[in-house]
Design a protein around this nucleic acid. Structure first.
Lengths: 239, 239
DNA sequence: AGAAAAGGTTGCGCCAGAACAACGTTCGAT
DNA sequence: ATCGAACGTTGTTCTGGCGCAACCTTTTCT
């Protein structure tokens, strides 16, 4: 769980890694080259903490491949998953929100490849690269919007709707087409889903069993395939 | 509820209005003068919508006096209060998050005096006034932090704790000292509190009655005085 | 291979708090 | 002063889903 910092600066990162990613997509190749030359790259195993709540926000990150879960832990030890980050997004950008410690913990939900830069470079990026700031805040805006949606959901919806919603969101954002439907693209347990929807793993298990009987999903250990997205959507909206 | 736009440009707004307010406090008097000269000022009655969810984000606002409630309304017509904004803060800054419509509705929780500028000036402010952007994002960061806290609360705490928390937050952020304690500085109903904490007005009423019997608070219609903040805090933390 | 750990299922009892209901109180309008 | 609307209280009933428990299945470790 401890992340021993083995930051290796890869001698040659391919420019094409970034050319289609929002905060960089408006930049020229030379600029992207500059940015990459200052980045560290690292592979993380599944379930590893990239940074921890309260820690010094000394670096910011870009997820090249894999998935990241942003979690918070309460005084009583319960976990709450506040966000999933798909590949191609910046995260740990405390600096952009005027913070100097990380407000939450980031854990890899699957194997991941992550670029990072020292936070001291943030201001330089903002100044030097046109559009970088604007594009970044669009991402922030989206995340704020998502959090807001979840707040409203938690305040007004029943457990079944919330879990259905969470699952829909997962397959929309991180779904991968498989033969009989769309599969959540990283290992996910009942417990994880319960921590995303403020319920217990038991309730999630019962719901998934029910849905499987209705032919909406198929699931095996840590894997969920949604075979009938439309049916699931109806569930998430009903009432 | 409809707000007929009677935007009057006040001939002389006092510079001292802004000199101690974060995004402006680092600016010189001439810069503040410039900013004020471009602002419209308006008084709003209680319970008036300043802008509405989904509406064109054509202006951004600064609350000079009073309180603003940021609400969202679900398909089924339920309200959820997602934020209270105290005087001295910017709001409706959709532009800062790369949005071109307002993501929520802002309603005055009390009489209010509000400055506003056309959104087109936002970029100009960011460019022209040093530190404006940074200070603004600190505010955004704080709000994101608050939303996150509420998410965790809703996911892990019982109703009693949530309501106690909400009340603590209200008196900390907007409290006004009165003879026998600290009073919430704007009219607030049981319904309002229930919309902040995802419960019903009945449950809130019962809780407040209980707390009053325990000597923690005193309340009359639309007014709540916390007479024993420490005791309330214990409640909000317990378990 | 065998054991242990992690993940998943299912049954059952219980209770916090929602839903429903009826009534009291305060405020503002005329 | 009267009336109606908004706000608040309190009693009773009912249920979603949590807590607890027992057990099964798959994966990982040695």
């Amino acid at each position: 769980m401890e992340d021993e910092k083995t930051l290796k600066t890869m001698p040659r990162l391919d420019e094409s890694l970034l050319t289609h990613i929002p905060p960089f997509s408006k930049l020229g190749l030379t600029e992207i080259r500059e940015i990459l030359d200052q980045a560290s790259s690292r592979r993380y195993g599944e379930g590893v903490a990239v940074f921890s709540e309260g820690g010094d926000a000394d670096r910011f990150f870009m997820l090249l491949d894999g998935y990241i879960r942003v979690i918070r832990i309460t005084e009583t030890g319960e976990q709450v998953i506040s966000l999933h980050i798909p590949s191609g997004q910046l995260f740990g950008i405390a600096r952009a929100l005027g913070r100097d410690t990380y407000p939450a913990t980031a854990v890899t939900a699957s194997e991941a490849i992550i670029l990072s830069w020292p936070t001291s470079l943030w201001d330089r990026f903002v100044i030097d690269y046109d559009g970088f700031s604007t594009e970044t805040y669009k991402i922030v805006g989206k995340r704020v919007g998502e959090m807001n949606m979840r707040l409203v959901e938690m305040a007004t919806q029943q457990v079944e709707q919330r879990v259905a919603n969470a699952l829909m969101r997962l397959i929309n954002q991180t779904g991968r087409k498989v033969e009989d439907g769309i599969e959540v693209d990283f290992p996910i347990t009942r417990q994880d889903l319960s921590e995303m929807t403020a319920t217990t793993l038991h309730t999630v298990s019962r719901l998934l069993s029910g849905w499987e009987k209705q032919g909406l999903i198929k699931s095996r250990r840590k894997r969920i395939v949604v075979t009938n997205p439309h049916g699931l959507m109806l569930l998430s909206q009903q009432r």
